[in-house]
Nucleic acid binder design. Structure first.
Length: 413
RNA sequence: GCGGGUAUAGCUCAGUUGGUUAGAGCGCUUGGUUGUGGUCCAAGAGGUCGUGGGUUCGAGACCCACUACUCGCCCCA
């Protein structure tokens, strides 16, 4: 093994891996366009405050997972750990408040300094969608329907949609107080981690996998019982909307987003096919975000999906386009072969001309790159103004007049 | 950040209680075929055994550290 290693948690994407990525991005964007989304590409890094303020000082992402650097000018910048904050910042800096509702699709690398695992890299890639400026639950429904549509189109079907409501700010504050009171009374029963959560992000305790914690929270007050009238109606509208669209879901009261700016709807498409990294696509409503960042108070909802995780769940990839190979028999025909290749490329064929070697070598190469056909040019063919076309699957070979060549090759285009 | 497992050819892996020139399959190169690939046959190239240290007459094998990968925890896409 070479001593030249890539940075931990980063990978080279090539061959089928990158084809999977591109297929996911292209499929997702094509479908998102049907829903009125246009693409946005924000910078891969931002001033650190963009993430530090919006993600909340207590989230793990901010406290230990950000790639943060100081510039020569002494400013702190951070490689983006997620996409929503950058889109929200772009919304504000470009003064887009006048143009709502806005629908943005994005794709690109994200960076988190975590311990790498299967389905978790330090540089990974996401696709995401944000719908900004619509306060009503029909936006939540549409965004989730879009997500489901994309997953279906990709052939990712063994996923379950979980949803929950985090309520509006008023409901969440009220519930948090009740929950903290309850958990504080049972502090001794909680795991060390959950005692920390109790300080930092008490809702997260509900999500613990620790068996002792599960017992301790068994009788905890339910979030659903503490939603105010508005929040309740909102959640009901989302659920009935999804049902009307035929989108199946399960309500998971323990579903709590790690990022502080979420409110009302939170959702995740999960699978058990990916070990510990079961979340494939997740999102929620962030009505407080843009206002908190100093922009005009504007509701929003969106989601992001991990391309690497989707790629692992994709069914077999459609085969790549197969080229035709133009093969000169000897050096005397090389230029004629190059010119024929140019002619074919000009009208849309994918053409490989090998490089050097005798005819046998070039035939081997044509076979190795899965060419559909070989077009053989030798002294005889040049003299007769023809080409020999060999179907590399059947082995059938025919002499074709140059004038008929493109027509004859039509099935291989 | 915490705990477990793994690291031998380009790839997938063998390698006995520590013993002399470290193997296989696939892939690659060349030839059988100087106008024909995919099949077949033959030959060949390719390894400081992840890195560094230690034990030993002797280490691919045993010990320690580091690095990477991997599984789980935490958290997340």
């Amino acid at each position: 093994m070479s001593s030249l290693q890539p940075v931990r948690g980063t990978h080279d994407l090539m061959f089928d891996d990158i084809r999977r990525h591109r297929h996911i991005e292209a499929t997702a964007f094509e479908i998102a366009q049907r829903y009125g989304y246009s693409e946005i590409a924000t910078p891969a890094f931002e001033f650190t405050e963009v993430f530090a303020r919006t993600l909340g000082d207590t989230s793990d992402i901010v406290t230990k997972e950000m790639y943060t650097f100081e510039t020569k000018g002494g400013e702190s910048i951070t490689l983006r750990p997620e996409g929503t904050a950058g889109v929200a910042r772009a919304f504000i800096t470009n003064g887009l408040a006048q143009q709502t509702p806005l629908k943005f699709f994005y794709r690109g690398p994200m960076f988190r300094h975590e311990r790498p695992q299967r389905g978790r890299q330090r540089q990974f890639h996401q696709i995401g969608a944000e719908l900004i400026g619509v306060a009503g639950p029909q936006a939540d429904v549409e965004v989730i329907v879009l997500a489901k549509h994309i997953l279906n189109a990709l052939g990712v079907t063994n996923v379950t949609l979980q949803i929950n409501s985090l309520g509006d700010a008023e409901s969440r504050t009220a519930y948090r107080d009740v929950l903290v009171k309850f958990l504080s009374g049972r502090r001794d029963l909680l795991s060390v981690e959950s005692r920390e959560r109790l300080e930092r992000n008490p809702l997260r305790v509900l999500d613990s996998k620790d068996p002792a914690d599960r017992d301790a929270i068994a009788g905890a007050p339910k979030f659903g019982d503490h939603l105010n009238e508005t929040s309740h109606a909102f959640f009901d509208a989302v659920k009935s909307g999804l049902t009307a669209h035929g989108v199946q879901f399960v309500v998971n009261p323990a579903l709590v987003r790690g990022l502080d700016y979420y409110s009302h709807t939170a959702f995740e498409f999960v699978t058990d096919a990916l070990g510990a990294q079961g979340t494939v696509l997740a999102g929620g409503r962030y009505d407080g975000l843009i206002g908190d960042m100093g922009g005009p108070v504007t509701p929003g909802i969106g989601w992001a999906a991990g391309i690497e995780r989707l790629a692992m769940m994709l069914p077999a990839l459609a085969p790549a386009k197969r080229p035709v190979a133009v093969i000169p028999v000897g050096p005397a025909e090389e230029q004629a072969a190059d010119l024929l290749a140019a002619e074919l490329r000009a009208v849309g064929f994918a053409v490989d001309v090998g490089y050097g070697g005798n005819m046998g070598k070039r035939m081997k190469r044509a076979n190795k790159i899965a060419a559909v056909a070989a077009i053989i040019l030798g002294e005889d063919e040049i003299k007769a103004n023809t080409a020999a076309v060999r179907n590399l699957d059947s082995g059938e070979q025919t002499i074709v007049p140059r004038a008929d060549l493109i027509g004859h090759l039509a099935p291989y285009r």
